[in-house]
Nucleic acid binder design. Structure first.
Lengths: 195, 195
DNA sequence: CCTACCGATCGGTAGG
DNA sequence: CCTACCGATCGGTAGG
């Protein structure tokens, strides 16, 4: 029984806490992630959980950072293998819609949920969520700008960013797993590719 | 000081509680509506608030019912003056996007937020929210079916229902008030009317 | 509609 | 990493 573990063990514990936190958050929201609930599920004491972060807000920020990393790994990075412009744009969209359908979280895409949960509040969590979404918008806008076709870039961007949350809604609220396919078709329509 | 008020007074108090609840819920979610917070804002005791509903869940259901009523009044009913088919469809869409932009609530459209907040849970609140959204989808699908044009009805429906939450996102997360205009244009594109 | 109260849980701290 | 504890708040009840 050694309360002080090694740095590697402490890091592993921290990762486990964050992983459990995003599972809970995807179901019940980031505010539903309470220290006591985490401690209970992990068989730890509350102070053991909180010691890794200091405050609940720091834990929430760490959870968002992990989700953003996962999004980058599953959606953005594979798309960078494709040529800039239309190919990369459609890869980003397709990866996004597949990821939202199956984000590896029991309650659906956490970034979609966090955007709605925090859009009416103030603070670091809201700012980090908004900034992550703004970067995603910028990435899509850049590829739209490189895509030839008879469309307005900002209008096309508005339409495409609508389809990700729409997939989340269809899957989580209605159990409709065909939504990703509809979203892929819709994205092609937006850029005038009847694919 | 008469603790027992008239039926009319009691009804007015009840309405005030629900109105305050949806204001809070639009900012902090339906779970952010606590009995104690309502009592504090209304200058009442907690048991005075709870006496009108019995449980918090009943209060949440009453709040959703009021929001659905407001939606019907501002979005659906005015559109029924338009001819079935394309005219009514576009009136429904335009009213919807305007309503989402300005729902008369400090934190944006509550139905959009509640769908995401409760989509991972079980219970009556989730069921009522899902059913309200399903009815809205059905209404749009019916008018899409009456609209002539070269489009697939279910594909068009998926795209159009995406634009309402997208307006909410743009307004609440980024303060972009031009989103309703983009959504109106997008809805017209979906049914092949470049208007 | 109130006061007074219940057990449970919240985020967080002290001290080891 | 723990136990033990803090004040605040949670939903809800008893009784009037």
């Amino acid at each position: 029984m050694s309360p002080r573990r090694s740095v590697a063990e402490a890091r592993h514990t921290r990762d486990t806490i964050i992983t459990t936190a995003i599972d809970i958050a995807s179901l019940d929201g980031l505010e539903g992630v309470t220290i006591g609930r985490l401690a209970g599920e992990l068989g730890m004491s509350k102070s053991g959980v909180l010691g890794h972060f200091g405050t609940k807000e720091t834990l929430q920020l760490a959870a968002i950072r992990l989700v953003v990393d996962q999004f980058t790994t599953h959606v953005v990075e594979p798309a960078l293998d494709h040529a800039p412009g239309e190919d990369r744009l459609l890869a980003l969209c397709d990866n996004w819609f597949d990821y939202v359908t199956d984000p590896g979280l029991p309650g659906g895409c956490l970034m979609t949920a966090a955007a709605v949960e925090f859009d009416g509040r103030a603070g670091d969590v809201r700012d980090v969520v908004a900034e992550a979404w703004a970067r995603w918008d910028d990435l899509l806008r850049k590829e739209l700008g490189r895509t030839p076709g008879d469309f307005d870039v900002d209008q096309a961007l508005f339409e495409i960013v609508a389809f990700g949350p729409a997939v989340n809604r269809a899957v989580q609220l209605f159990g409709d797993r065909s939504a990703a396919g509809r979203a892929k078709r819709a994205a092609r329509r937006v850029i005038g590719r009847t694919g």
